[in-house]
Amino acid sequence: MNIARTVEDIRSLLFKSPGPVGLVPTMGFLHEGHMSLFNQARKDSKTVVGTIFVNPTQFGPSEDLESYPVNIERDIKLLESAGVDILFIPTRDVMYPDGFDTWVEVGELTTRLEGHIRPGHFRGVSTVVAKLFNIVRPSKAYFGQKDAQQLLVIKELNKDLNFGIDIVSMPIVREHDGLAMSSRNSYLTSDQRIAASVLYRSLKTASRIYLTGEKSAGSIRKEIENVLNEEPLASIEYISLADIKSLCELEFVEVECLVSIAVKIGTTRLIDNIVLHPKELR
């Protein structure tokens, strides 16, 4: 595996590499969810490129940029074993050199859910992803469904800016008790880790009552809230039942619906989601 730390280095490596190229952008501290993306990219691509960059522009002033978990040596070993060809590990100065002042902003999709709670977050995400797309110029790029809104934003960015990349969505990878794998799970104490399983339990409750015929978004939302409120360590930020394309909140689940939640367990903020499919009722 070749490691590049500058734009010039990675472009030189890519110039000599066969296509198609598959790109997996990450912030590192890799887990099985990340590795599922790399494994799929390996199946699809002649050249697999991974990136590790903790992007400062997508963190708010009171968020966890300085404490975000990092273990580059471990990540390198994992990616070598997964058959990744090129790993790009830029510094902040490489991605945002002195005088950098160009930003990418996607519109309506970024005003809801995470965008509402975390102002500026998606401007940072969109900008860094656009830069990585331009630097690597892959045929395919791989993202996880756990960050469902981010996935929609990246698809919109790709379409509107004519990158022409095939955006591949991969399913959420979960722990044995259903907790979605996340680098931030490492923040949880043992008691908090047990408590965190309530997120998936609440989403499974939503799926169960939907499949019994409940279509009222308000009723489903209330059932999710009830389950989450049974856990003393859980603090709800939002519960959303939204049209999966526009992220507009629904009154009745009659189209494909993204059920997403943001919950704090102690001080650790976790997100998760499932999709309700009307065709499942037929």
Rank of each mutant, 00 (worst) to 15 (best):
F163E: 10
K159Q: 14
D160A: 04
I154S: 00
I154C: 02
K146H: 11
A130I: 07
V136T: 13
I117A: 01
L132Y: 03
T127P: 06
G124V: 04
G124E: 08
R137F: 13
E114L: 04
Q150I: 05
I165G: 00
R137Q: 15
L113C: 11
E114D: 09
P138N: 02
Q145Y: 12
G144Q: 03
F143T: 07
L157F: 02
Y142C: 14
I165R: 00
R118Q: 09
G144C: 12
G120V: 10
V128I: 15
A148M: 08
S139M: 10
G124L: 09
F122G: 05
D147R: 03
H116I: 04
N134C: 10
L161D: 01
R123F: 09
K146A: 04
Q149T: 13
V125F: 05
N162K: 07
H116T: 03
H116V: 06
D160T: 03
F163N: 05
V125R: 04
E114Q: 10
I154Y: 00
I117E: 08
D160N: 14
Q149I: 07
V153Q: 06
K140A: 13
L113V: 11
K155A: 02
V129E: 00
N158C: 12
G115M: 04
R118I: 13
T127Q: 03
K131V: 10
I135P: 05
N134V: 09
Q150D: 03
L151F: 00
L161A: 03
D166V: 08
L161S: 01
P119R: 06
A130L: 11
P119E: 08
L151E: 06
